[in-house]
Design a protein around this nucleic acid. Sequence first.
DNA 1: TTGCCCATGTAATTTGTTACATGATTTA
DNA 2: TAAATCATGTAACAAATTACATGGGCAA
Lengths: 205, 205
Amino acid sequence: MLAFGEEVSGYDIKKWADWSIGHFYWSPSFSQVYSELKRLESHGYATSRVQHGSGHRGRRVYQITESGRRAVERWSNQSPIDPPMLKHSVLLRVCLGHLNEPDRLKEILQEHIAHVDRMRQRVATDARAAAAEPAWAYPRIAMQWSERYYAAERELALQLIKDVDEAAAVLARARQENNGEFPTPQPNRWREVERKVRATDSAGR
Amino acid sequence: MLAFGEEVSGYDIKKWADWSIGHFYWSPSFSQVYSELKRLESHGYATSRVQHGSGHRGRRVYQITESGRRAVERWSNQSPIDPPMLKHSVLLRVCLGHLNEPDRLKEILQEHIAHVDRMRQRVATDARAAAAEPAWAYPRIAMQWSERYYAAERELALQLIKDVDEAAAVLARARQENNGEFPTPQPNRWREVERKVRATDSAGR
DNA sequence: TTGCCCATGTAATTTGTTACATGATTTA
DNA sequence: TAAATCATGTAACAAATTACATGGGCAA
């Protein structure tokens, strides 16, 4: 975030992260921001000074160095693009759906949708605000992406609510044919499947 | 994953995680799987035994206990539903777009799309395979969700490629008006914006 | 018969969070 | 003037990865 050239404090960075990149990249805790800033400085990627007076009790502000700018540019241009990492605990619950009542599962999905809608509203407002500064042109299109991402997330969750009924029906039918017991998959059945899938997968390339 | 009732080893779990859960929840490293299994056992949530012979050099397999089943059921039903966590380094690069040539940025987005397409193909095949086992009804709809998620990701990236041109144009124009220098945002300008946004945000609730 | 993948783990390290401490400033 | 928020940090802990070690089975 220092790469935008502003002189900012750790507190600023955390707040800004919550506001913008937090939507598509997790926002670190305050304590980590502070310690990473120190690390950046020790590597010569940033310099710091303490701002006194004018209503502050000594706030340390950081500024990127030329070496730091080059390093982040190098990262952005050349580092391998690793796949996005997602930890979607709601989907994890769906995957373990047989442990919940279908209605409870759908309730959880509705709550999830409500949260997504709130986030979408927020990022939409922020994206409009970002339009005021030309320097924020790229952060702005990233925020617009987030807005559309939340919209997609909503639609996917709605579809999933329908699918829950279907899965519940499949399980109920299998249970009947299995004397009321939850059907256990054939031991290690998924391993054959995975092997077969991987074979056709590598053949396709 | 033990909650499906099968007796599995750490290796099995890791492979299965890569295959299914990995699409919507990150897949842990082998070493973590092994140590977490030990922890589960120490808490009485699972039992283990060593399988000998038949082409194995002593593989330790784990099975969930009743206490473990109740614990995961409790988690799934009652634990607070925290928001999904995303770490999308491609979007991070877009956000830092002013460090790259727009063409390089679009190249990165194209590579990302290619990766997404591969993953989508894989999960689609896996989801079809999962249809064979009634016990996999819920994992299956989770995989179908992943398939649609990848489809959405693709569309979002395509839109973003268009937006990059727009942002590049905005920046170029601002640079001209700024004697060829990259425009720096007004110091802490975003803080006012954030304050204003938050104010209207809380008023809305 | 050599090299590769399967399989299981340990140790060291990195990454990131929570809990706590502290004081200054704003606002109700 | 009390409570909330701004602001900066430290210490302890938890989560997760990488590097490494080891041996068995299988295919060229």
